[in-house]
């Protein structure tokens, strides 16, 4: 009995304390990483070609899935809205219902979730793979700023591309709602579009754009951070991918509530 052993009942609190400390440290590390990423966004040498490649990966390659999901979103909105509003003879509000739901809420949120699922997960996996195969160390050895090279370029690309994808989502959703409503539900297409033009204001579009910019930061931040700080080989890659998708999805939905509460 040289050293006094900690009593058994202290083991529980000890573990809890270590976990809490790890969580707090993880949050701090991510926040510092975000700061480092944003600071290097326009740093020299400016890697324009890399930004273009990331824009193509996050933007162009997401167009298909964004258009597909927005079509169904627009159709279900017009179907539900028509069902609810026709009971009160208020079909004239169908257009504003569809357009405002899409532009203010569903467009930014669903587009961000689709980009996360498609591109965010891939970003986390790619960077985690580079980490565990020591390619990031190799970058540092070559005097390349790895945070700028891997994270800042993707942050800039996401900030440019996500608002545009959101606009595609909104327009395709409205177009699908219009087509479906006119051809299947028999609503008047002219009234539908005129009521949208009457009710949607520039401030609604601005709210949507502000949200999509915030979500773009979430996507680029969490997926690069998770990849950059991946550990433990192949398992670490999988963990980084899963964690980034889950965390971004939660952040997007929570952030959407906060933004709506602030901007309404």
């Amino acid at each position: 009995m040289g050293e006094a052993e900690a009593p058994r009942w202290l083991a529980g609190p000890g573990v809890a304390g270590r976990r809490t400390l790890a969580l707090v440290a993880g949050v701090g590390r991510s926040a510092l990483f975000l700061g480092a990423t944003l600071r290097r966004m326009f740093a020299r040498p400016f890697r324009g070609r890399l930004v273009l490649q990331h824009m193509r990966f996050i933007g162009n390659r997401s167009v298909g899935i964004v258009l597909l999901t927005s079509t169904f979103t627009g159709m279900v909105l017009v179907l539900q809205g028509h069902n609810a509003l026709s009971r009160f003879g208020s079909e004239i509000y169908l257009g504003p219902l569809v357009a405002l739901s899409l532009i203010r809420e569903l467009g930014p949120v669903l587009a961000a979730l689709m980009v996360t699922a498609r591109a965010g997960s891939a970003i986390a996996a790619t960077i985690a793979g580079m980490r565990v195969t020591e390619q990031i160390d190799a970058l540092e050895v070559m005097a390349v700023d790895s945070v700028q090279y891997l994270a800042s370029t993707r942050m800039l690309a996401a900030l440019l591309v996500v608002p545009m994808l959101t606009a595609f989502f909104n327009l395709a959703g409205i177009a699908a709602a219009h087509t479906f409503g006119v051809s299947v539900l028999g609503i008047d297409g002219g009234t539908f579009m005129a009521s949208i033009r009457d009710s949607v204001e520039l401030s609604d579009v601005n709210v949507g754009v502000a949200k999509s910019l915030l979500f773009a930061i979430f996507i680029a931040w969490v997926s690069t951070d998770q990849g950059y700080h991946a550990t433990r080989g192949a398992e670490g890659i999988g963990r980084a991918t899963t964690t980034s998708v889950v965390v971004v999805s939660v952040l997007v939905l929570a952030g959407d509530y906060v933004m709506t509460a602030l901007l309404l």
Binding site: A99, L165, V205
Partner: peptide, 27 residues
């Protein structure tokens, strides 16, 4: 890459412009 991103950006800017100019019908 340059060409495809170019198409994307032109379409994206056009979509945002259409949303804010025509749909939102700038007063």
């Amino acid at each position: 890459t340059e060409i495809s991103v170019g198409f994307f950006v032109i379409a994206g800017v056009a979509a945002i412009a259409y949303l804010s100019l025509s749909i939102a019908g700038v007063q």
